[in-house]
Amino acid sequence: MKVSLLQCQSSRDVSSNLAFIKSQLELLTVDSRSHLVVLPECALLFGGHERHQLAIAAEHDASELQQALAALAKEFSVTMVAGTIPITADDGRLYSRSYLFGPQGDTLGHYDKMHLFDVDVADGTRQYRESDTFCPGDRISVIDTPFGKVGIAICYDLRFAELFRAMALAGADIIALPAAFTKVTGAAHWQVLLQARAIENQCFIAAAAQWGQHNEGSRETWGQSMLVDPWGTILAEKAQGTGWVSADVDLSANIELKQKMPVQGHNRFVAPQLLDSDANA
């Protein structure tokens, strides 16, 4: 199969961001093989305060953004991890949701970002408080596809090894990670965390990132979209700029490695358990 990661420099202009994604899909070579496309976090709206997401949020299955990206998956006959879309939650906040669309535009599953970025960073933004606008998801997501099981995590989730172990125990062959790491934290930790998660869990990691200065410099992201194999080898990466990074992937490598080095079977710790939603809030 083929995996393609789109690196974006998204703005607050939803129409422009959607047009960019479509223009990039037109550049892809799609053949009879399975083709997994991963978009970055906030691919359709990025920069400024998280509250801007409220203006484009909608209920599940009523989101025009969800429908637009599903239509693109169908038009270009790809399986798409559609970055993140704001979906309304019962408490007045939003879920940061990543959908997995099939090549017919059908919704195969979704994941709501579980770990929210409430962090102080030494950059121009300084304080990030996602929980003011978003509420955390309460379940992992490992989705069956014709080519294998796809797990989904989002950005800050990368720092939480238990989530990735839970997806590996649920059978994930490849874990997609839409992300928008800050330039400061990305420079320090992005690559080493991606390789660690791949090695620990003996699965492929497909991380699509935002890159560069957004909205006249109000936000700056790291980039370095990267595909990592179960041995920790970087199969492809795009350090800077926008556009695609692609590589062919043989998911059977997971099976062979797990047979030779059965790490999960040797693990003497209990499987991770998710805390209740109140404790995560």
Score class of each variant (00 low, 15 high):
His110Gly: 05
Phe101Pro: 03
Phe160Gly: 00
Thr88Cys: 00
Ser131Ala: 07
Ala73Val: 07
Ser96Arg: 08
Asp120Asn: 14
Ile56Val: 15
Pro86His: 02
Val78Leu: 13
Pro178Arg: 03
Gly137Cys: 10
Tyr156His: 12
Phe117Ala: 11
Val142Gln: 13
Phe134Lys: 00
Leu163Trp: 01
Lys74Thr: 14
Gly148His: 03
Lys149Ser: 13
Ile174Arg: 09
Tyr99Lys: 14
Tyr156Gln: 04
Met80Leu: 15
Ser98His: 03
Ile87Val: 13
Arg129Ile: 14
Gly83Val: 10
Met80Thr: 12
Pro178Phe: 04
Ala58Lys: 10
Ala58Ile: 06
Gly109Thr: 06
Gly124Arg: 14
Asp173Leu: 04
Ile140Gly: 09
Gly83Pro: 07
Ala57Met: 11
Pro178Met: 03
Leu163Asp: 02
Met114Glu: 00
Ala153Arg: 15
Asp123Glu: 14
Asp90Thr: 10
Thr133Leu: 06
Lys113Gly: 06
Ala82Gly: 09
Tyr95His: 14
Leu72Gln: 08
Ala172Trp: 01
Gln67Asn: 15
Arg165Tyr: 14
Ser96Asp: 13
Val150Gly: 14
Tyr95Trp: 10
Ala176His: 12
Asp144Val: 11
Ile152His: 02
Thr79Gly: 08
Phe147Pro: 03
His60Phe: 12
Ala82Arg: 11
Arg93Pro: 07
Asp91Thr: 15
Gly102His: 11
Pro86Tyr: 10
Phe117Val: 03
Asp123Val: 03
Ile140Ala: 06
Ala172Met: 00
Tyr156Leu: 02
Ala168Ser: 15
Val150Asn: 06
Tyr95Asn: 01
Phe101Ala: 12
Val78Phe: 00
Asp106Pro: 10
Phe160Val: 02
Val119Thr: 07
Ser141Asn: 10
Arg97Leu: 05
Tyr156Trp: 10
Ser98Leu: 10
Ala82Asp: 06
Val78Thr: 05
Val119Phe: 02
Phe147Gly: 09
Asp144Phe: 01
His115Asp: 05
Leu72Trp: 05
Ala153Asn: 11
Ala153Gln: 14
Ala68Asp: 11
Phe160Trp: 09
Ala89Asn: 12
Ala153Val: 10
Ala161His: 08
Glu59Phe: 07
Met80Asn: 13
Ala176Pro: 05
Asp112Ser: 09
Lys74Asp: 15
Val150Asp: 06
Ile85Tyr: 12
Leu94Pro: 01
Gln67Phe: 15
Cys135Tyr: 10
Ile175Thr: 12
Tyr99Asn: 06
Phe117Gly: 01
Thr107Pro: 01
Asp106Leu: 07
Leu100Phe: 02
Phe164Gly: 00
Gln104Met: 13
Gly137Trp: 03
Ala62His: 15
Ser98Gln: 12
Ala168Pro: 04
Glu162Gly: 08
Ser77Trp: 07
Gly105Tyr: 04
Ala82Lys: 09
Thr79Met: 15
